[in-house]
Design a protein around this nucleic acid. Structure first.
Ligand SMILES: NC(=O)c1ccc[n+]([C@@H]2O[C@H](COP(=O)([O-])OP(=O)(O)OC[C@H]3O[C@@H](n4cnc5c(N)ncnc54)[C@H](O)[C@@H]3O)[C@@H](O)[C@H]2O)c1
Ligand SMILES: NC(=O)c1ccc[n+]([C@@H]2O[C@H](COP(=O)([O-])OP(=O)(O)OC[C@H]3O[C@@H](n4cnc5c(N)ncnc54)[C@H](O)[C@@H]3O)[C@@H](O)[C@H]2O)c1
Lengths: 207, 207
DNA sequence: CGGGGCTTGTGAATTCATTCACAAGTTAAA
DNA sequence: TTTAACTTGTGAATGAATTCACAAGCCCCG
């Protein structure tokens, strides 16, 4: 299959959110134009994005809302439950553990891991905090699909090396660090400091 | 000035972080090649990125670490203190309020705002939580540069309209919503569900 | 059943971003 | 002073993403 750009996948994600909104409002069809207005893009972009995966619309009419939503869920792999663990039960780890937006989309948080004895054994909104020493053993047993990394920046690469060795293939990283891993491991980094600096740049360099 | 791509600004941010690391280790010069290895890019990319803003290196030698760091801070607008307020003193808002990575880079969090009477009047790690009803008045008075948006998705656009009307020109949004604002308002959205779906896609569509 | 009004799907054209490749400048050593 | 080894800065080449533009298909109305 042709390689799909990251930006395309992000848009598909956005389209799905809008479709779900339309679905709850009981609308049954939608045009690429409407979808585009909603998502701040163009109708040609919407159609091109979808065209990588097939042709789901009806000319003259548009797309069936439930059908397209289903197709997008399938494309994005949202049919199944994904198993997720959090490493680093600190402030941001705790916020994420409690975030219902994840479970709602099929991301099931199994456990959190920490190296601080005060945190180990507690629960974060029903999610157990375990000893980081058990990490490899638990990964063998529970086979999580995704690791969410919320440890301090200078610990991040170590944790990556450990979980990659244990067989994890996808990591969502919140530490401000450039992580290295084999190509078959997908890593997405959310760097909030970088986003803020982007705003700083925008405020500074307006013509 | 020629329009600078978002991706370029993000890389500049990353270069600055590496340079600061080099600085603390006492190194005085660095080549584009070293900077590139560190950041997972190429030396040509580094030089091209910098070339949009001037020429800061010495042929045959590389870049002076402190000088280049200074130039990047200047380009990114990190010379000054930015004034930031948080709207939505919930779980993610609280985590951000306590995040030292922001203050450290000159982002000074003045206050948080909420509409929940139980939260108003409390403090988040020294930061006061104020009534959302005071928002416009306080913006007039305190002139924050940046608003961090951490309210539920369906409240987000309302808050945007209010702060934009009050004169705010930059917003960092964590709500999973497509926001609309005039072009002279910079908005960056961090959508964690989208990132997770990107991982889901990657795990699903590996050839 | 034919025509007008819409909307999709997609090659082609365009715009934008990255990589190449090399002249020109710097240093250090002989 | 000359030479060898490096490294920058930048046009030109390539590659990727977006936008254009239109034939082809569908629906509805008369
Ligand atoms: N708090 C925020 O809003 C925020 C925002 C952006 C980025 N981040 C980043 O997220 C990460 C965590 O930030 P935080 O504010 O939650 O910090 P925190 O100190 O509250 O949490 C870090 C947690 O990781 C644990 N930890 C440290 N080393 C570990 C290891 N080797 N193995 C397992 N657990 C370990 C600590 O015990 C702690 O509980 C940092 O990299 C930070 O830069 C945080
Ligand atoms: N918790 C997470 O890890 C996480 C992750 C990703 C995105 N988000 C997003 O961040 C936002 C906040 O999430 P949260 O988990 O912190 O939820 P939360 O319910 O803990 O916090 C939301 C806060 O906003 C306040 N609020 C609601 N409407 C308001 C209004 N009109 N004006 C002012 N304050 C208002 C509420 O009183 C509450 O304190 C949501 O949009 C959520 O989707 C959260």
């Amino acid at each position: 299959m042709k390689r799909i750009a990251d930006s395309t996948v992000r848009r598909l994600s956005a389209y799905l959110r809008f479709l779900e909104d339309f679905e709850t409002r009981g609308l049954s069809t939608i045009s690429s134009e409407e979808l585009a207005n909603r998502g701040g893009t163009t109708s040609a972009q919407v159609r091109k994005d979808l065209s990588f995966f097939g042709s789901f619309g009806k000319r003259g009419l548009g797309y069936s809302v439930p059908e397209l939503a289903g197709r997008l869920r399938e494309i994005l792999g949202l049919g199944k439950e994904w198993r997720v663990v959090i490493v680093g039960a600190g402030k941001i780890g705790a916020a994420l553990a409690q975030y219902r937006g994840f479970r709602h989309r099929g991301f099931n948080i199994l456990a959190a891991y920490d190296n601080n004895p005060d945190k180990i054994g507690r629960k974060l909104e029903g999610i157990p905090v375990r000893d980081i020493e058990q990490l490899e053993r638990d990964i063998q047993r529970d086979k999580p699909d995704i690791v969410v990394l919320t440890v301090p920046g200078d610990e991040a690469q170590d944790v990556v090396d450990r979980v990659v060795k244990a067989g994890v293939k996808a990591i969502l990283n919140f530490a401000p660090a450039q992580l290295h891993a084999p190509v078959d491991v997908a890593i997405k980094t959310v760097n909030m400091a970088m986003e803020l600096e982007g705003l700083s740049f925008a405020l500074t360099n307006r013509e």
